[in-house]
Simulated assay, not measured.
Amino acid sequence: MMRISTSGTPRWMLGTAVCGVLITGCSSGGDGGDAKPQAKPAAEAKPLAAGALRSLLLTQADLGSGYAQAQEEPGEEKFDDISVQGCPALEKLGQSGEENMFAAKAEASFTYDRDATLGEEVHSDRPSVLSSKLRELFDAYTSCPTYTMTSGTTPIEVKVSKSVPPKLGDEQFAYTSTMELPSGAQVLKTMAVRKGNVAVMLVGAPALVDRHIETAVGKLPAGS
């Protein structure tokens, strides 16, 4: 059994696992031919500061009527008692969790019509780091079609399927999770889009994620 640390995995991904669901660098090799002068690779864009990311988050004005922003108490740790069984890739991901997955982040969460949820995180890092870590994260979460998530002493059966994201930004990732909760099945979609050195992630009711992902990506800097 693997215990997931909230310090190594985005908070909203763990939150969705309880409410109803969420590193390696790139490497390159060369052939053994004659050594030739090579142009110096272009420098990668540096991460943005966390303060700059906050202005990129969705707001109630962006979302429209019916949404309320959820407030979280500083230092609140809601998901320390989450564990996963039956998915080796997720176990490995949890065991190798880093204190900070990306260089900077900002986050917000909303409720819609009182019972639907939409969570957002905006992350920044060097483009190669964002790309490799997002790919590893989504590969892990889609590697097992079923697994068991335990919240405290309550086992939750989870079914996962890959989803087709819209062609936005430089890279896109998406999957849909169905949780068998005591109150009934709940379906959530997780989607991420990377644009240069910034990535936006949405998770929540599938219709809400699909409705707002284009707006969320549209708030990212054009030159990021």
Rank of each mutant, 00 (worst) to 15 (best):
V200Y: 05
T154A: 12
G15S: 10
D62C: 07
T9H: 05
A39F: 07
D80K: 13
G64M: 03
F79A: 04
A174I: 06
T9R: 00
E180R: 11
L130A: 15
L137H: 11
T190E: 12
G218V: 03
L90V: 08
S163D: 15
D62Y: 04
K133I: 04
V129E: 07
S163I: 05
E77T: 12
S83M: 08
L56K: 03
G86F: 05
T215R: 03
G86T: 10
R54Q: 15
A39N: 04
S183Q: 14
P37M: 15
P145S: 00
A174M: 02
G184T: 11
R194V: 13
S224N: 02
P155D: 09
V164F: 10
M1K: 03
L130V: 15
E73G: 06
S109W: 01
Q172G: 14
N197W: 13
E72M: 12
T9G: 01
P88Y: 05
G75V: 08
A52D: 15
G97W: 02
T176G: 05
L181R: 10
P41F: 07
Q85P: 00
D115L: 11
I82W: 01
L134A: 08
K40Y: 05
V84K: 03
Y141G: 04
S5R: 13
L220D: 03
E136G: 15
A52Q: 15
D170E: 13
M149I: 12
C26F: 00
S7Q: 06
K78F: 05
R135Q: 10
L22Q: 08
L181D: 10
R126Y: 13
D31R: 03
Y141C: 06
V129W: 02
P41G: 09
R211D: 07
G51W: 09
A108W: 10
L56I: 01
S96F: 04
M101S: 10
V84N: 07
R211M: 10
K78P: 08
I4P: 07
E76Y: 09
S124F: 08
T9E: 01
A35W: 13
Q172N: 11
I23T: 11
A35E: 10
G204W: 01
D125Y: 08
V193T: 15
G94K: 03
Q38N: 13
S151M: 04
L14R: 02
E157G: 14
L168V: 05
N100M: 09
M1N: 05
N100C: 05
S131R: 15
M13Q: 12
G169L: 04
A174G: 00
S124N: 13
K40N: 00
K189W: 04
A108I: 15
R54P: 11
A103F: 06
P206D: 00
L130N: 15
V160W: 02
V200Q: 02
A174L: 10
G94E: 06
